[in-house]
Write a protein that binds this DNA or RNA. Structure first.
Length: 806
RNA sequence: GCGCGUGUGGUGAAAUUGGUAGACACGCUAGACUUAGGAUCUAGUGCCGUGAGGCAUGGGGGUUCAAGUCCCUCCACGCGCACCA
């Protein structure tokens, strides 16, 4: 039955066959153990790119492997389908965002199926459908009831290109995460989620995520940014010592309090406007503030730029020694960290040192590394810990003890308190755009926010809108804006939700995708969750992955489920590169996966991706690599479909079976640890063995099963051509027969002083004496032994024998 | 600046626990088959050396009978955070 490998002739019909047979549907009630494989769902741009393909092929291979191993596998796919591209297309080309998105979703489903991805499509979801986003609104209201939602006026990140605000996590190097535009600061009323209530738990529970990459946990830890310190109150006084106000600073170094020579306050601090009245030259200060606020985030956060500031004309009083030190307004103090006021200790903080030297402020050394009392003029801040000097009763203490002692003293004076400070800010979820989930709030005549009642959900996006790019279209929709509830008139909130809200719980919805009375049923969640294996790009290390963790904890506290963390194991696959660079339209180095599929078939694309590099490393796309993958499949196809032409000699059957069962063992291990590249190389070795000594039908069938998760089309096609029952993907995973793979003889390495000098073929489990005598019978070894004195012999059973000769 | 990671043939890589470095592939070389080859098959392929042998996992040092693997140090590249008080 000689046949050429022509994948395009059978792959598509298999897609249809799998679809019809519902091969990948899973059951909520099964005797089998559940296993939940999930990939980060895509934004439906309409076209799959190589990054998607890599992500999904890895997940699909795992899902198929687990299915064959007898698990009840939940492997769903959906679409993160709200967001700006649809709206921008509407503005630019007058296309309806809903129709545009729906079309893209449909096209992507076809592409995903064509790749051979075995999703349970009965659970699919698309976040732009109101049967999904109504539950966004429901969750929002539930969180609101729980006190996890609030509205606040504040300085926010404004993306001038996307015309909307951004959460802190979404500003990267001072630029919008999507648009790349330099963000501006705006002061407006916005909706926030209280993620900071969970800062400590989000930090603590990182330790429980033992199967997450360390670097992701570290990035989250740094993002949460806990620091432990002291808040200290400084009284503000004028020239003649009259009390004006009190400011509070946060410091992690209360041990340096006696070295404070001035206090700095942020431009945005609410007290500044009051203090301006005291200043001798308010206009100069006002222009300084205006200048600072006008400079963009990138410039303002450039630590290398000279620090600027102005004296506010008033003094702060150091609560421990009553020193009157000047209060400066300074551009390097951040309003959104700590209290927006810092005590400046130039001798022991490099930023304060820079500022102090530029403004001729005194520098007072209060920490020494050694015990010397001589204080040389310093040329840089000493920021380490040490022994205190010139610090009254605390002189002589070490920093660590002094921190406690000084804090205790401040507490006794009622001038300070211990404080844990987090860098994490509350999550700003308002977006001033149309194509998102409407925030289910209304405003009464007095502008008080009132929640929409849950029975009224969903608050649907109106259709009578114009996309002219001028402001938020929702505000111009009469049908949307005016609402009457219980006989009272309200105006609707026009902000929509950050799309990260949508993606923070979609993995829960898959567990109960068609529920019409609540977002998900707690029992189904306990059956399926946690996600056993989550797979996605590293770019979401502190965005989506932090939000999703927060959501699960918040849902738990609202009584909706009982788990603490969403994702048990996390894999961040590497990027797909071309010519050493990330594929991008701007570089013009993109590769369209469908081009590979149309020429070589989906199996080739899959094998290329899985074989090319370990999953977590970047993968360089090469044409020769794709051809190599195709060649392998072709060779394997010919061997398996035409195994009768390669029948093994009876003498070689044992050898063949041994290689086959060793391959089962190795491939099973490799797949369990995501080592697809080595799994494929093992199958290649088995194939090479079959070409050299021939094969049997039994071995051919095992070989096909081992490759089935990786190359699902070819293996199923051949399987069915060989008159096997059903699909290969419904078969049980082969099991290694240990008795077949036992070796009688083994190669033991013989070393002289750690260098390999001979290799000995010896009965397995031979003892030291036997190995020694065989080694000594080797002429080569004898020569070395005779050339000196044998000092020591090291023996590792079945591995090596090492003679130390001097 | 701080933190983290990576570095192995011409190339992608393997070596799961300190124990034969370079599996498997790509590429290349030679040969076979062929009207043809960008198909297929066979053999070879870390480097130096005719050879015996020597040298090799970014550089240098250390621990060990034995180091790609552990420790120290330096270098290069990548990533994250970046005035976080």
């Amino acid at each position: 039955m000689s046949m050429e490998y022509k994948p395009l002739s059978f792959e598509e019909s298999l897609v249809n066959q799998w679809d019809t047979e519902l091969l990948y549907a899973c059951d909520d009630n099964s005797e089998k153990d559940p296993y939940y494989v999930l990939e980060m769902f895509p934004y439906p741009s309409g076209h799959l790119h190589m990054g998607h393909v890599r992500n999904y092929v890895i997940g699909d291979a795992l899902a198929r492997f687990k299915r064959m191993q007898g698990f009840n596998v939940l492997y769903p796919m959906g679409f993160d389908s709200f967001g700006l591209p649809a709206e921008n297309a509407a503005i630019k080309h007058g296309i309806n965002p809903k129709e545009w998105t729906q079309k893209n979703v449909e096209h992507m489903i076809i592409q995903l199926k064509r790749l051979g991805l075995g999703y349970d499509w009965s659970r699919t979801l698309s976040t732009f459908n109101d049967d999904y986003y109504r539950w966004n609104q429901w969750l929002f209201l539930t969180f609101y009831e729980k006190g996890l939602v609030y509205r606040k006026k504040g300085w926010v990140n404004w993306d001038p290109v996307d015309q909307t605000v951004l959460a802190n996590e979404q500003v990267i190097d001072g630029k919008g995460w999507r648009s790349g535009a330099v963000v501006e600061k705006k002061e407006i009323d916005q909706w926030y989620l209280k993620i900071t209530d969970y800062a400590q738990e989000l930090l603590d529970d990182l330790d429980s995520l033992t199967d997450w990459p360390d670097r992701v946990k570290l990035m989250q830890k740094n993002w949460i940014g806990k620091s432990v310190g002291t808040e200290i109150d400084f009284e503000l006084v004028d020239d003649s010592g009259n009390h004006l106000e009190t400011v509070t600073v946060f410091t992690t170094r209360p041990d340096t309090l006696y070295g404070a020579t001035y206090v700095s306050i942020a431009c945005e601090h609410p007290l500044v406007s009051t203090l301006l009245k005291q200043a001798s030259d308010p206009d100069e200060i006002k222009s300084f503030i205006a200048k600072t606020m006008a400079s963009n985030q990138v410039d303002r956060s450039d630590a290398t730029k000279p620090k600027t500031g102005k004296w506010l004309g008033v003094y702060a009083v150091n609560p421990v020694n009553q020193d009157k030190i000047p209060l400066y307004i300074a551009d390097y103090v951040l309003m959104d960290y700590g209290t927006g006021v810092v005590m400046a200790v130039p001798a022991h903080d490099s930023r304060d040192y820079d500022f102090a030297t530029a403004h001729n402020l005194p520098i007072r050394v209060v920490i020494t590394q050694d015990n010397s009392q001589d204080v040389e003029p310093i040329t840089a801040a000493f920021t380490g810990q040490g022994r205190l000097i010139d610090s009254q009763q605390f002189t002589g203490l070490h920093s660590e003890k002094a921190k406690d002692a000084i804090t205790d003293y401040l507490i006794s004076l009622s001038k300070g308190r211990r404080k844990e400070q987090f860098r994490l800010r509350d999550w700003l979820i308002s977006r001033q755009r149309y194509w998102g989930t409407p925030i289910p709030m209304m405003y009464d005549d007095e502008n008080n926010p009132v929640p929409v009642s849950k029975e009224q959900l969903p608050v649907r996006l109106p259709e009578d809108v114009q996309f002219d790019g001028k402001g938020n279209p929702l505000a111009y929709s009469e049908t949307f804006m005016n609402v009457t509830e219980n006989g009272k008139n309200y105006r609707r909130e026009t902000d929509t939700m950050d799309t990260f809200f949508d993606s923070s719980w979609y993995f829960l919805r898959y567990c109960d995708a068609t529920n019409t009375i609540k977002p998900f049923d707690a029992e189904k969640i306990s059956y399926w969750m946690n996600v056993d294996q989550y797979i996605g790009g590293i770019e979401h290390a502190v965005l989506h992955l932090l939000y999703a963790r927060f959501f699960v904890k918040a849902c738990r506290d609202c009584g909706l489920l009982t788990i603490n963390e969403p994702f048990k194991r996390l894999l961040c696959q590497g990027m797909v590169l071309k010519d050493g660079a990330k594929m991008s339209k701007s570089l013009g180095n993109t590769v369209d996966p469908s081009a590979i599929i149309n020429q070589y078939g989906a199996d080739t694309a899959r094998i290329f991706i899985l074989f090319g590099a370990p999953v977590e490393r970047d993968l360089e796309y090469t044409e020769t690599g794709v051809e190599g993958a195709f060649r392998f499949l072709k060779r394997l196809f010919s061997m398996t479909i035409d195994y009768g032409s390669y029948s093994v000699h009876p003498d070689k059957v044992a050898e063949l079976n041994k290689v086959c069962h060793k391959t089962i063992k190795a491939v099973t291990d490799d797949l369990a640890r995501f080592s697809f590249n080595t799994a494929i190389s093992r199958i290649m070795e088995l194939l090479n063995t079959m070409y050299s000594i021939g094969t049997t039908k039994e071995v051919v069938l095992i070989c096909l099963k081992l490759l089935a998760p990786l190359a699902p089309f070819m293996t199923d096609y051949v399987w069915q051509r060989l008159d096997q029952n059903g699909s290969i993907h419904a078969q049980a995973w082969p099991v290694c027969d240990e008795s077949v793979i036992q070796d009688d003889e083994i190669t033991v390495v013989c070393q002289i002083n750690g260098k390999v000098r001979d290799k000995l073929l010896i009965a397995i489990n031979s003892d030291q004496a036997t190995v020694e005598s065989v080694a000594k019978s080797s002429e080569k070894i004898q020569l070395y032994l005779d050339s000196g004195t044998l000092r020591k012999t090291i023996f590792v059973p079945n591995k090596l024998i090492n003679f130390v000769v001097t």
